[in-house]
Computed example of a mutant assay.
Amino acid sequence: MNTKELYLKTIFCCIACDGDIANEEVELIRNMASTSNTFDDLEVEELLNEWIAEINENGARFLQSYLSDLGEAKLSNQEQLMIADLAIQSIEADNRIEYSEVKFFKKIRSRLSIGDEAILKEHPDKEDLLLPDIQTNDKLDWDTDTHFAKISLKEIKKFD
């Protein structure tokens, strides 16, 4: 998996980890795909829908697989900061921060080697995301009844 794909998968996992993909979260991806080169050379919609099928089938194992990929990735400090930034943007996109999202961010954070200071320099008001209030073991809580619809970046769909 290349770094740009890892960036997109970070966003996807962060928007899906609470069991709901909000329209605002899809809009975040749409805006990034159209206004920056973050996802150049990627078939964004195709990848998202592939991941939806995988997460619908595998649930928490899909999220765990992402965390494993992240832990094995050889990322520069700047790339790790980008992962943290994309995760934070994704978590905040729907203006509703769920504990499952905070917990997932902490799991992401535990796989990055950069210091908290670097993240706080970019996001000084996000100290609560870095506080060690939970264990970051690999077990993920996941509602097995959670299923997502396909994502279209051309129009906003209402998700179940």
Rank of each mutant, 00 (worst) to 15 (best):
T3P: 02
L6A: 07
L8I: 02
K9I: 05
F12N: 10
C13H: 05
I15V: 15
I15R: 09
A16C: 14
A16V: 05
C17S: 11
G19I: 04
D20C: 00
L28K: 06
I29F: 09
R30T: 15
N31V: 12
S34H: 13
S34C: 05
S34R: 13
N37H: 11
F39A: 08
D40I: 05
D41V: 05
L42C: 00
L42G: 03
V44T: 13
V44R: 08
E45D: 10
E46D: 12
L47S: 05
L47V: 06
L47Q: 12
N49Y: 07
N49W: 06
N49F: 02
W51C: 07
I52G: 00
A60Y: 09
A60S: 14
R61L: 11
F62K: 07
F62G: 04
L63I: 07
Q64L: 03
S65W: 10
S68V: 14
S68L: 14
D69F: 08
L70I: 03
L70P: 08
L70D: 12
G71A: 10
E72W: 07
A73M: 10
A73E: 15
A73F: 06
L75N: 11
Q78H: 04
Q80T: 02
A84R: 00
D85H: 15
L86D: 06
L86C: 08
A87W: 09
I88Q: 11
I88F: 03
Q89S: 11
S90W: 01
S90Q: 07
E92F: 00
D94T: 01
R96T: 14
R96H: 12
S100C: 01
E101I: 05
F104I: 00
I108M: 08
I108P: 07
R109K: 12
R109L: 05
R111E: 13
L112A: 07
S113L: 09
S113K: 08
G115E: 14
D116R: 02
E117R: 09
I119N: 08
L120E: 10
K121S: 09
K121P: 03
E122Q: 12
D125C: 01
D125M: 12
K126D: 15
L129G: 02
L130C: 01
L131R: 14
P132D: 14
P132K: 10
D133R: 04
I134Q: 00
I134E: 11
Q135K: 08
Q135F: 06
N137D: 15
N137L: 07
L140A: 05
L140N: 09
D141R: 01
W142Y: 15
D143L: 04
D145V: 01
D145R: 08
T146G: 03
T146R: 08
S152R: 03
S152I: 02
K158S: 13
D160Q: 13
D160S: 15
D160G: 11
